[in-house]
């Protein structure tokens, strides 16, 4: 299952495989299939840890999903699922309103 999902492109598509392949460049790959980059499958933190209520009050939790400048980190970087990203964004915006989180970091 994980091996399938980590295949970004099918193996047979490239006769023009320009780069030299280095098998086993990084340990921990599934089966060591000759791919240069192995990206870990991202999982939604809230689904895995079964955190169901995303609340504007727990700043510790929200801070993990806010970038240094105070931006909300996009889903594609954090791996949070759509449902949770929506409620996360709402909670972050509420926390900003009550000055628990910054709108923009000051310099």
């Amino acid at each position: 299952m994980t091996a399938e999902s980590t295949h970004p492109r099918p193996e047979g598509s490239g006769p023009a495989s320009s780069g030299p392949r280095q098998p086993g460049a990084r340990p921990g790959g599934p089966g060591g299939g000759g791919r240069k980059f192995f990206r870990r499958k991202k999982v939604c933190k809230f689904c895995v840890e079964k955190i169901d209520g995303i609340h504007y009050r727990d700043v510790r939790l929200l801070q993990q999903f806010v970038a240094e400048r105070g931006k909300i980190v996009p889903r594609r970087l954090t791996g949070v699922c759509t449902t949770h990203q929506r409620s996360l964004a709402r909670a972050i915006k509420q926390a900003r309103n009550i000055a628990l989180l910054p709108f923009a970091a000051r310099f």
Partner: peptide, 22 residues
């Protein structure tokens, strides 16, 4: 100096539902 009011009952209802399902 600042205040916020948030409605919680819908969220609580949703959480209760999830808990029941679980």
């Amino acid at each position: 100096i600042k205040f916020i009011s948030v409605r919680m009952d819908e969220e609580e209802k949703r959480l209760a539902k999830i808990k029941a399902i679980r």
